[in-house]
């Protein structure tokens, strides 16, 4: 029974394949994986403690966040960040320098599919640690949140859009490895901007007006702060829908960017080799 697969079915089969092999490979490195997760737990925890301290000093609330709401914000941010983060820059740096990328090029499929599948496999596997960690933090810090039902319903979609908003931009940046071996400085500059404008240092409400306005036109808010604020019930329906439009715009721009840079990168790779 060799029914001809539709392109979509074919892609699904390929994803299942990538997903399975990634799971198997990553399971081999489970200890390293757990250790890398630590950073994703420590950072929100540290800022949560800092802002809890500030809120307590200011009589229990600051910038519209109570102590419990800070807890909800940072536990939410930890989970959303876990869903959307990528390590693709280092991956491409390694693949291109080691020459492994040549093998990727031989496959009759765009390499981004493997990258997405690998990312998801890692996320699913490590959820086994992140969820208990989140529950533990919830037990310690007693978060309070009151989302509207429609916000809960919209959240999954906003999360998926956040994932792709970040993925295409990160992936475009990863293509820098075609041009330079010194990607660390570029990455770090990118991350510092991201950490501020995505709302990881503090909820964006706590920043000056100008920063908040700038955050609206940059992609970073839509990668993290937006879905977190949505599920915390801090947005109006209009704001939520507007945010999703912004996400879609950035996904579109990201796709175009990824495509353009990738083509140029491949041309350069073919011309200069690994």
């Amino acid at each position: 029974m060799t029914a001809i697969l539709t392109p979509f079915q074919n892609l699904c089969a390929i994803y299942r394949g990538f997903f399975r092999t990634s799971l198997a490979v990553q399971f081999q490195y489970r200890v390293a994986m757990l250790i890398w997760l630590l950073g994703g737990i420590m950072e929100p925890l540290v800022y949560l403690v800092v802002w809890t301290t500030v809120a307590q000093q200011q009589g229990g609330a600051v910038g519209g966040f109570t102590v419990q709401e800070f807890a909800a914000y940072y536990i939410g941010a930890m989970l959303v960040n876990h869903a959307v983060f990528t390590w693709i820059m280092w991956e491409y740096d390694y693949r291109i320098r080691s020459g492994e990328f040549s093998a990727t090029l031989l496959r009759p499929i765009h390499p981004i599919h493997r990258d997405i599948a690998e990312n998801l496999a890692y996320k699913v596997l490590t959820l086994a640690v992140m969820l208990p960690a989140a529950l533990l933090l919830a037990w310690i810090f007693q978060p309070r949140w009151a989302p509207q039902p429609w916000a809960l319903a919209l959240f999954p979609l906003a999360l998926v859009l956040a994932f792709f908003t970040r993925f295409f931009l990160d992936w475009s940046l990863a293509m820098a490895a075609f041009w330079t071996t010194r990607i660390n400085a570029i990455n770090q500059a990118y991350f510092v901007v991201l950490i501020f404008f995505a709302g990881r240092v503090a909820p964006l409400d706590l920043f000056p007006e100008a920063v908040q306005r700038l955050a609206l036109v940059l992609p970073f808010r839509w990668m993290l702060a937006f879905p977190v604020e949505l599920i915390l019930g801090r947005l109006t329906l209009a704001e939520a829908l507007g945010g999703m439009v912004a996400q879609l715009i950035w996904i579109g721009l990201g796709l175009i960017l990824a495509r353009t840079i990738y083509r140029a990168g491949i041309r350069r790779y073919a011309a200069f080799g690994a």
């Binding site: 800092v50 500030v54 200011q58 910038g63 501020f196 240092v201 706590l206 920043f207 000056p208």
Partner: peptide, 13 residues
Amino acid sequence: GGLAVVFRHTGDL
């Protein structure tokens, strides 16, 4: 930047 944001809202940490 982190310090600046924190001290926008409080005199001491």
